[in-house]
Design a protein around this nucleic acid. Structure first.
Lengths: 216, 216
DNA sequence: GGGCACACTAAGCGCTCGCTCAGCTTCGGC
DNA sequence: GCCGAAGCTGAGCGAGCGCTTAGTGTGCCC
């Protein structure tokens, strides 16, 4: 979709694809509320209130509260997948592409923590059909990272015995950033991204010198 | 408290410290329900029903639904801290102790996944006082792991630039096991524990030969 | 064997939830 | 300048929530 090779982890204000304006304001309000309190603890009155509207206005743009979560989750997963695909398909060694994938994926989870939190941790609140759709996207996310790891093993850059398990661990490490990252904490998303790229290269047994020129 | 050096990651059936019997049945039912649906989506009628009792029976043993979560969280964090302390204070090199800590911590998160899920992911549902108490325990957990990493760096076993950040990542990796681990999946808790111990030793830059004799 | 503490239940209170609906305002087309 | 569509609100419905209370059965002490 969009060229996501910008400066700091993505675009400045997302959700621009959601129209009309009132629908976007409601969706942004829902992201904040779900991230703060969780889907089940958030009321439709709270969402509407944050968007400066009455509770009934929500149902003009969305059929149910669950549809809001579904839309958020879908857009968020699309974005996450887009980030990983961009990193996976650029030129360079497997080590460079893995470092790029991890650092940009982590930057997104840290920098857009509210969104990432909803996307990664409120999946169970979706109904069976919506959950199945999202799980399919997650399998693509997994496949993208596993592909890089496999190529690194094939080329001799990496030393990995359990490719599936290590891929799972790498993604798990990145995703969990959304749980603990604190915007007011001592680290910027860029710093965490750089640290994590280095840790992941160590996990896959990349050579020391391959770890050095991992830019930002 | 208890000697937690048993066979596979802990005792066979926990919660034995909760008495009387009815109170324990309610608490176990609450753990299952909270893990499946989340705290806010779980009703007191559901908890009581799983325990084979009427909704009112819950309030004989617990003042509120939140007190149930508090008790679960407290006991679970005590257990997690106990596991890490046992590993941190045994004899051996920093690499051996870190591998032991990670593998037993991961075994607990995978093997007792329902409990771990509630303990690690429902913290925000607690009130301010209870949350503060639990956060103090988490800082102790963090300090225990950071201690091992620091000793490894001091002794020259490990090669770590950012001790705090790396410790955070190690714990994050272990904790997130509770989110994705599937009891019916292809891996046993022991296998995941062994894989993760190896990955963590790579993350801290332990020498190759120090990674080999990680028992269990 | 009478009295009482205790564990538990049936019923339901007050409240808030997700969601609906009748009606109001605004605005473009003609 | 009238009309209908669209966006939004105020009021409120039925349901289910956390929790309470009055009453019941049971077993232990003396």
């Amino acid at each position: 979709m969009s060229t996501a090779e910008e400066t700091t982890g993505g675009e400045i204000e997302p959700w621009e694809e959601v129209t009309p304006d009132a629908a976007r304001r409601l969706l942004v309000a829902a992201v904040e509320a779900f991230a703060e309190r969780g889907y089940h603890a958030t009321t439709t009155r709270d969402i509407a209130g944050r968007a400066g509207m009455s509770p009934a206005a929500l149902y003009i743009h969305y059929k149910t509260k669950e549809e809001l979560l579904h839309r958020i989750s879908r857009i968020g997963h699309d974005k996450a997948l887009d980030i990983l695909r961009t990193a996976a398909r650029r030129e360079g060694t497997a080590a460079e592409r893995l470092a790029d994938a991890v650092s940009s994926f982590v930057r997104w989870h840290a920098g857009r923590r509210t969104t990432a939190r909803v996307v990664q941790y409120e999946l169970d609140a979706l109904g069976p059909d919506a959950r199945a759709e999202i799980l399919a996207l997650r399998r693509q996310v997994d496949a993208e990272v596993r592909g890089i790891v496999q190529e690194g093993v094939a080329s001799g850059e990496f030393d990995v015995i359990d490719v599936h398990g290590t891929t799972l661990a790498v993604l798990s490490l990145c995703i969990d950033v959304a749980r603990w990252f604190n915007v007011d904490g001592p680290r910027t998303p860029e710093e965490v991204g750089a640290l994590y790229a280095d840790l992941v290269l160590r996990m896959v047994g990349a050579e020391q010198d391959a770890r050095r020129p991992a830019q930002t």
